[in-house]
């Protein structure tokens, strides 16, 4: 026993250290992924007997208008959420100065990320609320008729995304602020001697050095956009008449909400959402792997 250990200690130790984490990861992430895939082939209400129905859930999904509404909204989320990256960079650059009291301003800008998404959602629903909301009053004052953003299928998704962008921009800003701290002053100095300033300085000198920060910012923004469940649930509950649904909310609605309990159908939606996320995740992993093997 101990001879075996002595001979193989170096080979075994990393695996032993990895074991607890790997076990948890397998138990709570890997296995459930395959379980959902499995459940998605059943018709099951979570209580009674599950019946194997093959790909019927997927066939139904393809024919379901709500699925396309959710998919479309997910795309809108992904595209518009990306605004958080340039806007966060803008604010970070703006705040990256040495002025008296700058720390206070920085923490004020960071504040929305600290408060819970539920609170953000509530604040924005009051902001948009008909009859007393600030935004509603502003629109009413400037155009004559108020618009209840969260009750109008044309604006509702954009209204929720605006609420989501507020904390997301703060998050990206913090990422860039730490990135800006690491920008090499000698390179900036050298660029200045060569006459670079303004946009050229930003584009050719600062941004390349911020690439790691940009990468992380894009990753967290994509993930944030795809799991945009809490704001939808708090602000509209998917409404009006389901027009602000996103895939994660649609899945919850079908599988776990008061009128749902179609576990198989919910699992099928989860599998589709997982497939979409997989595209991005493999993209990110591929990029990371390429960056590391270049070194």
């Amino acid at each position: 026993m101990s001879a075996f250990w002595k001979a193989n200690q170096r080979r075994l130790a990393p695996w032993l250290f990895l074991a607890p984490g790997a076990l948890m990861f397998a138990l709570y992430v890997i296995i459930p992924i395959f379980q959902s895939l499995w459940i998605s082939f059943y018709d099951w209400d979570g209580l009674g007997k599950a019946t194997w129905i093959g790909t019927a859930n997927y066939v139904e999904l393809v024919d379901d208008d709500s699925f396309y509404t959710s998919l479309k909204n997910n795309v809108i989320w992904l595209v518009l959420y990306m605004l958080a990256v340039p806007l966060g960079l803008l604010i970070a650059i703006f705040l990256n100065q040495t002025v008296w009291g700058m720390r206070v301003y920085k923490s004020l800008f960071f504040f929305p990320f600290v408060i819970s998404q539920v609170v953000v959602g509530l604040m924005f629903s009051w902001f948009y609320a008909p009859d007393f909301g600030l935004f509603y009053k502003l629109i009413e004052w400037s155009t004559g008729t108020g618009v209840a953003v969260l009750a109008d299928e044309r604006f509702v998704t954009y209204g929720i995304i605006a609420a989501g962008l507020w904390p997301q921009i703060a998050y990206v800003m913090i990422l860039y602020l730490t990135g800006l701290n690491n920008v090499a002053p000698d390179q900036v100095e050298a660029a200045r001697l060569d006459g670079a300033k303004g946009w050229k300085m930003l584009w050719y000198v600062i941004l390349p050095q911020l690439r790691p920060a940009t990468f992380i910012a894009v990753v967290v923004t994509v993930i944030g956009a795809l799991r945009s469940f809490d704001l939808v649930s708090i602000m509209t509950d998917g409404g009006p008449y389901g027009s602000s649904r996103v895939l994660s909310f649609f899945m919850y609605e079908q599988a776990l909400s008061e009128y749902g309990y179609r576990m198989g159908y919910g699992a099928a939606i989860a599998v589709v959402l997982f497939a979409i996320m997989m595209i991005f995740i493999s993209g990110f992993i591929w990029k990371m792997w390429r960056d590391e093997s270049e070194r």
Binding site: A151, E153, G239, P240, Y241, G242, E253, E258, Y259, G260
Partner: peptide, 17 residues
């Protein structure tokens, strides 16, 4: 039943709008 209820109530809301 739950699924019909949900779809129905969404329909009523849409009709009202």
């Amino acid at each position: 039943p739950a699924e019909m209820a949900k779809a129905g109530m969404e329909g009523f809301q849409e009709f009202l709008v």
